[in-house]
Nucleic acid binder design. Structure first.
Lengths: 186, 186
DNA sequence: TATACCCCTTACGTCAACGTAAAGGCAAGC
DNA sequence: GCTTGCCTTTACGTTGACGTAAGGGGTATA
């Protein structure tokens, strides 16, 4: 076993360091005029600067600038939150962009509003359908769990109770390395 | 305006034709030994043959063969359904493969079963989290709807009632082409 | 027997959503 | 003043999930 252990870090941009606020104004959290650096948002939401710049490129964000540097407002932050959730529910960036645009169309005329309304409702329908899918998938998996639990109750009830701790139980019971499990595979 | 109108078809594989069952055995639907051609499944689930072959390549499906031709069983069909729903809820093909493999591990030993159980539970948790996201997104969009509806109620209540039919209403009211809406955009 | 559909394989192309590298600028701290 | 760390831009690379084309074969119908 070598003495130096390898670093799990993958790339530069993703290495986030401690961020002490340099400006006391930025320290007080509940000011709506608060602003953020790109890195602050990246740390907060676990994304890379590259991603934020990419979203900007695609027209989903438009932070202000301080010289060359990007300055994100609380509004930008809110948009980012929506973007990330949009992604989690399966929207593509262009779909998200469209939705954000619809939101932003502050008074683009009544006709636009009606159009937006229609699209929103379509999205809602799609999401409800997706929720059905998720419920179905959960149900399937839970059936699988029940089956596995039954199987285990008969063969190895000791492996059953706490799924997270089963590794240690296993080691104690098998009196050997956990790798032994591999020998059991069909 | 040219006389010949362009064909909207994009590519060969996606053009599905009528599929009369050639073999009367295949006609009677509720036999569990029923089998399907690739095209039948493609039509039923609106996917391309390429996709099915791709899933096979990736180890998610393994249909039987009749000479060179693929023959899908009802079990293959069921797997396909799971695959497609897995995709809809945001799983990658390799994740889906893993889940299917766990399902298939018919008695790969108690230790494997315990491991599968753990993974299933993790998946379930992730899905429940995702459902939260979806509910949140729905709520946001519904708030947007309410806002838009309020806005429309004040300015153009005539555009309100039936979102699907608003186009015709629009045309009638504006006494001109629907394109006029474009002129309103900020 | 030619045409129309169906099937197959191999293989290169594509698109989204970034990753990663290269090259350089500004500010703080030693 | 040099290094460190953050920021910038431009630009090429990558991965997943197929699309699409090319080339060839089986069967049934006109």
């Amino acid at each position: 076993m070598p003495i130096e252990y390898s670093r799990p870090e993958r790339y530069n941009e993703a290495r986030y360091h401690d961020l002490r606020p340099a400006d006391p104004r930025r320290t007080d959290l509940r000011r709506p005029e608060r602003s953020f650096t790109i890195r602050q948002l990246c740390v907060e939401f676990s994304v890379t600067p590259r991603a934020l710049r990419f979203y900007e490129d695609k027209g989903l964000l438009f932070p202000a600038r301080d010289g060359m540097n990007r300055v994100y407002s609380t509004r930008d932050r809110a948009r980012l939150q929506l973007i990330l959730r949009g992604k989690r529910v399966g929207f593509s960036l262009s779909e998200i962009r469209e939705i954000l645009d619809l939101y932003d169309e502050k008074d683009g005329g009544a006709v636009q509003a009606a159009r937006s309304l229609k699209k929103f409702r379509e999205r809602i329908e799609a999401l409800k359908q997706q929720r059905e899918d998720i419920d179905g998938a959960i149900q399937n998996l839970e059936e699988g769990c029940v089956r596995l639990e039954r199987q285990l109750t008969e063969s190895r009830p000791d492996l059953l109770p706490r799924a997270e701790a089963y590794d240690s139980v296993l080691r104690a019971r098998l009196d050997g390395p956990a790798d032994a499990a591999l020998a059991l595979s069909k």
